[in-house]
């Protein structure tokens, strides 16, 4: 034990110094953390854990909880309408799973018209993400296709620039305005042409979108 005593003393000193240092650094940075904690409901949605999401949203103040926005103004419904996969198969799987979360949130009073700080609604996020079933559900609950973000993008424009042909088809069927123009003067047609030029590999998709838009 005599042999280990000084070593343990040194080890304890180092751990103590490290811990004091970490606590001090944390305190120093605390003022810089704005709304720092992650929302467990959003975590449950990202993990596609419906039970955890139900438990988190609770019963009494469910509506308030379902509409609690983060520092960028994004609500849980917007998070449920967001996915970012390069692969259409994974996007389709996410769409099929997320629909249960969207249903649950809407049942508990999530506002389908809520917009984040850039003016994006849940429908804008679903349009970008390529989540068709989620988009259908949001539209069936009154989500607006006429909403524009800070730059003047409509959900239709967002779906066009991403080449999400099924979403474009859905929006056209639901009466989206194909003549709208962005704040920088770009029309839906101009957005389509730019996207086409940027991604020649998606040419067949853009040809189909062009047909749907009747341009």
């Amino acid at each position: 034990m005599k042999k280990y005593g000084p070593i343990l003393k040194d080890g304890f000193t180092l751990i103590l110094v490290s811990t004091i240092f970490v606590v001090a650094v944390n305190a120093g940075f605390k003022s810089l953390k704005k709304n720092g904690d992650a929302d467990p409901l959003v975590t449950a949605i990202s993990q596609e854990n419906l039970d955890a999401a139900r438990e988190e949203i609770g019963g009494a103040d469910a509506s308030v909880r379902a509409n609690r926005a983060d520092e960028r103004g994004r609500t849980p419904l917007m998070w449920a309408a967001y996915a970012n996969f390069s692969d259409s198969k994974q996007t389709g799987e996410a769409d099929a799973k997320r629909i249960s979360f969207v249903d649950m949130l809407l049942e508990r009073g999530a506002d389908v018209h809520a917009a984040d700080k850039d003016g994006w609604t849940a429908l804008s996020w679903a349009a970008w993400s390529g989540l068709k079933q989620v988009s259908e559900k949001l539209l069936s609950r009154g989500a607006s296709l006429a909403v524009v973000d800070a730059r003047g993008n409509t959900p239709l424009m967002i779906a066009v620039l991403r080449g999400n042909v099924e979403i474009v088809r859905l929006f056209i069927q639901q009466g989206a305005d194909t003549a709208s123009v962005r704040k920088d003067g770009k029309s839906v047609k101009a957005i389509l042409e730019a996207a086409r030029k940027a991604t020649p590999s998606l040419e067949p998709t853009f040809v189909e979108i062009q047909g749907l838009l009747k341009l």
Binding site: F29, D118, W128, D149, N153, M157
Partner: peptide, 20 residues
Amino acid sequence: GLLIAGFSYEGIRAKIDTGN
């Protein structure tokens, strides 16, 4: 962590795509 939260947050690509 602070820089990631401020400049590379989840969903930023959607906003970059649309010029936001």
